[in-house]
């Protein structure tokens, strides 16, 4: 999933300063799973903004709406009827959601409430960890299912740096050294041959593309 964290309230307030009628829009998918942009968080943020305005003697209107996905137009459509009544959309979607909403409603300013952080997994409740940088050329098959691009702080493809100690990464001792994991798992899977092989330079053009990447699937497209 895509993970995100709420921006500090002060930053959100600064972006909203010119506006009075705010449509606070959540997303029911990734950011709901990571408890940053779902219905509950929309409620919390809207409530905090209303109280904050009241304390400062301003009147605002903060209306709450959460749609299933902010990155798919057919769901964004559900906002169409309401949008016209508001000065601004405060989106609690990920970066893709914010942009999709902005695309659909070019006349209404859209501001992000979240900092989109990474693609990750829910390790345990309340703990999310990054494990993919969407490099466009998945190499996990050679690294025992541990991504060296993401989980090694230096993105090393050919073994641990000189700082790996007791299973921890030298850069962040709270994180496991990806290479310790790769070595252990390849060993136990009987694939130490992969540990001896030199992995060639990555093709980052698959990640960087020529600007934004796109996927076109003719079989999925509608005729029109």
């Amino acid at each position: 999933m895509i993970t995100a964290e709420r921006k500090p309230l002060a930053e959100i307030k600064a972006m909203l300063a010119p506006y009075r009628k705010i449509l606070v829009v959540g997303c029911g998918t990734c950011v709901a799973e990571c408890a940053s942009g779902g219905e509950k968080e929309v409620g919390l943020l809207a409530s905090a903004l209303r109280m904050d305005a009241q304390i400062e003697g301003r009147t605002i209107e903060a209306h709450e709406m959460t749609i299933d996905r902010q990155c798919v137009y057919e769901f964004i459509d559900k906002l169409t009827e309401a949008v016209g009544r508001y000065d601004v959309i405060l989106s609690l979607g990920c970066g893709a959601g914010v942009q999709a909403v902005a695309e659909v409603f070019p006349k209404t300013p859209v501001v992000p409430a979240l900092n989109t952080t990474f693609i990750g997994e829910t390790k345990e409740s309340g703990l999310w960890v990054e494990n993919c940088r969407a490099c466009g050329d998945c190499k996990l098959g050679y690294f025992a299912g541990v991504c060296p691009v993401t989980r090694c702080a230096k993105g090393l493809f050919n073994g641990p740096c000189g700082g790996s100690k007791n299973g921890a990464c030298e850069v962040d001792p709270d994180s496991p050294c990806a290479w310790q994991l790769i070595v252990e798992r390849l060993d136990s899977a009987g694939r130490s041959d992969l540990l001896e092989a030199i992995y060639p330079p990555a093709d980052w053009s698959k990640q960087q593309g020529k600007g934004p990447r796109k996927i076109v699937r003719e079989d999925q497209r509608s005729e029109s």
Binding site: P8, A10, A48, M51, D52, I55
Partner: peptide, 8 residues
Amino acid sequence: KLIEEIGL
């Protein structure tokens, strides 16, 4: 923490 952000 959240209410402290709005000054309560």
